[in-house]
Structure formats: C-alpha cells, structure tokens
Simulated assay, not measured.
Amino acid sequence: MKAITPEMEYLSTRQSAKVLQVSLGTVQKMVELGELIAWKTRGGHRRILASSLEQQLQRRKRAMRQKSTQHCVAMGIFRRTENSVALLEAIQDWQLKVEMEVAVDSLEGLMKAVSIAPDLIFLDALIPPVEQVHLIHYLSKNKDTQRIPILVDEGFIKLHPGVVTLADENAGTRSSVPEELKEELENGLIELNPLIIGYPATDPEMDAALNPDNRHELLEPLFLEALSRKCF
C-alpha cells in the first residue's frame, strides 16, 4: 500500500486507487457517494483530498478492529465449485469470522439468499454477465434481500451496459432482457446502487499486479465495507 506523506495535499484518482488498493472505478464511485472529497481541475482531471483518503484508511482500520470478532454470514453464488473452494479456504485466514453458504447455481443461490437472509451476497465473476444482471435485479427487488449488500466483479460493473446491448443483438427480435429491467439499469440499478460493492477480479488495471491469493486478501476489507453498508 502506498503511504500518504505530509507534503501531499491531494492525489490523482490513480494515486488514490493505489493508496486504497482498489480500482479506479471504485475510487470514482466513492467520490460520487461522498466517501472521498474531490474536485476537478480546469483540465478535467479529478483531484482527491489526501486528508479524506487518510480518514477512509482510518475508518477501515477501526472497522477491522471492531468487527474482527464479528460473526458474518455470507451467501456465495458461484459458477464453478473450485472457485467456491478457493474462497472458502482463503477466508479461514481472515480476522473476520465468515460462515459462507455456497450455491453453484443461480436459482439455488436466490432461494438460499431469501431463506437465510445473509449479511452479504458474493457473486462469482465467472457467472455470465446477463445472468448477473438478472440476479442483481431479483435480489434488489425481493423484500427479504433488497437491503443486503452485494459484492460484484469490478469488470462487470464497467461493462454491463454493453453486455445488455450485445445480448439483445444476439437474441434477434426477442430480447433476453425485459424492458422494465433495461429501464432500471438506465436509472442506476448497478452503478448508482450503494449496496453494490465492486471487487477486483477481471479488472485489467489490476490484473498485472495481483495474483489469486492477493485478490482473496483484498476481499476481507470489502466484506467489512459491505457489513458497514448493510441496512437494518
């Protein structure tokens, strides 16, 4: 993690992403949600106040200390069994105690999520994009799951509008995405939803710097962030 030095009053979006160990998209979303203080230069470049980054880091540390003994129930919906096994093994080393229910099928995952009402829901990056759109739609609409944070691949968050368009083109005259859902997407179902939290999985900006073990390590603070956003 890159340190913030006393002479640094503000940082670029890219520098801020390195400090927080998140993607550029996550930093931009944090600015939009008011979690980071930023402004734009005359040239249109975003600058983020260093003190607000420091506050964010301190909040993370406090959350880690406060919730290190907390029992968290998570629901993981995966495409492949081996992906669920890898994450289940990784969370054994976390300070946060996580009990994860697993489904390797979207319908099973939806039914389990409604049944157990977990603290957070994790969507595997290998779930087909259109299927992820439908999952988020149903989870956000169901009264038993609509207040539960959902961890979603950063790459999917960036690409989902194009994914929907491509799905329509491939389907021909019969659209695979209902008009109601398209309207919800246009109104910010995913990118403006504070309960949608991105995690690095297929983000090319971070691919070169991260191996699978690093990715799993980065998930723990994101799980904590999800818990802090959960609406009771």
Rank of each mutant, 00 (worst) to 15 (best):
S115H: 15
E131H: 12
S175E: 09
P149R: 06
P161M: 01
I127R: 12
L166C: 02
I157K: 11
D124N: 13
L126I: 04
P128M: 08
E191D: 15
I148M: 07
H134R: 15
M100Q: 08
A113F: 02
F122W: 14
M111A: 09
E191L: 03
V102P: 08
E99L: 04
P118W: 04
A167L: 01
H137C: 06
L96E: 09
R147W: 02
G162H: 07
V102A: 04
E131Q: 15
A125C: 08
V114R: 15
G198A: 11
S106H: 05
I116N: 08
T145D: 08
V177C: 13
T165P: 00
K158W: 02
L159A: 11
V133S: 05
I148Q: 07
D124K: 13
M111L: 11
P161I: 03
K97L: 03
L166I: 10
K182A: 00
E154N: 13
P118I: 06
G109I: 14
V98T: 14
P128V: 11
I190P: 10
L189V: 08
A113W: 02
E179M: 08
L139Y: 09
A167F: 00
K112M: 14
P161H: 01
Q146R: 15
N187P: 04
V102S: 06
I196C: 03
S106Q: 11
N142S: 11
Y199C: 02
G172T: 13
K112D: 05
A167W: 00
L192I: 00
K158G: 00
L139N: 12
A113H: 04
L135R: 12
D168F: 00
D119E: 14
V114H: 05
E180Y: 01
I121D: 10
Y138T: 09
P200C: 00
V163F: 01
L139T: 13
I136P: 14
D153R: 08
N142R: 10
T173P: 05
L96N: 09
L139Q: 12
K143G: 01
V114G: 01
L110Y: 10
E99K: 12
P200W: 00
S176A: 07
K112T: 13
I150G: 08
K158H: 05
D144H: 10
